[in-house]
Simulated assay, not measured.
Amino acid sequence: MAVRLRPLDQQVVVLTGASSGIGLSTARLAARRGARLVLAARNEAALRQLCDELNAGGERRAVAVAADVAREEDVARIAETAVAEFGRFDTWVNNAGVSVFGETTQVTIEDFRRVFDVVSWSVVYGCRQAVAHYRSRGDGAGAGGAVVNVGSLFGDRATPLHGPRDMFVGSQAKTTALAGALFPRLVDRYMERHMWPSQMADDRPSQPRETPDSPQPTAALWTAGYGMHVRGSNAGWHRRRSYWVAARTHPVRTVAGTGVAALGLLASRATRR
C-alpha cells in the first residue's frame, strides 16, 4: 500500500538536532514552506530563540523540546509533545549527531559509546516512535508518514582520527563508498592526508569531558554545544576550487572538454598501434 504524504504546508515535522547546522537550516526552510515543527536538541536556549524567530508572525508554528536523543525516554517525550501540541506528526527527521576526533587508542570507550548512542541508537529510538505513531493513525488521506535519517560517508568509511561517525550528506558519500570498494588503500591514504586535517582548527582544541576546575562534563560531546550556527564555529579549511561545481555551472564546456580528452586518448592509443 502506497503511503500518501500530506503537502509540506499541512505537515507536522519532528526534527532532532535542530539548534544548529543542518537541523537549523531545515527548520527555517520547512517553516518557510508552511510546516509546523517540533524542534528537539540539548541546547534549550538556542531552541527557544529559534522558536521565537519562527513564531514571530503570531501563529504558533514551532515548539521546542529540550532533549538528549541518546536517552530513549527523551525521544519518547519528543513524540508525546508533538501529539499534545499538534495532535499528530507526519515526518520524523533523525538529524542529531556528535563526533569526536582522536586515535582509536586515545579515545575512551566511554566517549565511543556516547557517540554511538547519539548517532546510532537515537535513530533506532526515533524510528520506533515514528512507526508506532504512523501505525496507530487512521485519518484517511495523509495516513502514514515519513522517516528521514540523515547519514554520512563516514557510515561506510572511517577516517584516521575520526573512528566515530560524523554527520554529512551529499553525493560525496556515494563516490567515496565506491572508491573505497575499488581502491581501499588509495582512499585510506587520501582520508589520512586530506580529510581529517581539513576539519581541524588551531583555535578550537579538543576538550576533555571533565577538568580539575570543572568536575561536571563540559565538552560538547556530553553537554549542549553552541547554538544558532548554520555552518558551525570551526574556521577549518576551505576548498579553493570545486571541479564538481565548475562542471555543473558550465555543462557545455565540460562535455566538450571531456569529448576532446576522450578523442585525444583514442588518438594516442591508435598512434601507438
Rank of each mutant, 00 (worst) to 15 (best):
R4T: 11
R6H: 12
L8W: 01
D9M: 06
Q10F: 09
Q11R: 13
V14A: 02
T16D: 07
A18W: 05
S19L: 01
I22P: 05
I22M: 08
L24I: 07
L24N: 05
R36L: 07
R36V: 02
A41Q: 12
N43K: 05
E44R: 14
R48L: 14
N55K: 08
R60A: 06
R60T: 10
R61P: 05
V63H: 10
A64W: 03
A70C: 05
R77K: 13
R77T: 03
A79T: 07
E80A: 15
A82S: 05
F86C: 05
F89L: 08
W92D: 01
W92N: 07
V93M: 09
N94S: 14
N95A: 08
A96N: 02
T105C: 12
D111W: 00
D111E: 15
D111R: 10
F112D: 08
F112K: 04
F116Y: 14
V118W: 00
V118D: 01
W121P: 01
V123L: 08
Y125F: 14
A130K: 04
A130C: 07
G140S: 09
G142M: 10
G144L: 02
G145V: 11
A146Y: 03
V148N: 03
N149S: 09
G151E: 13
S152R: 06
R157I: 15
T159K: 07
L161Q: 13
H162Q: 12
D166T: 14
M167Y: 10
F168H: 13
F168T: 13
V169R: 15
K174T: 11
T175S: 09
G180M: 14
L182M: 05
R185P: 01
V187Y: 05
D188L: 00
M191H: 11
W196M: 02
D202N: 04
P212T: 08
P212F: 09
D213P: 01
P217I: 06
A224Y: 04
G227K: 12
M228A: 07
H229C: 10
H229K: 13
G236T: 04
H238L: 11
R240A: 12
V252D: 14
R253H: 15
A262W: 12
L265A: 15
R272I: 08
R272N: 09
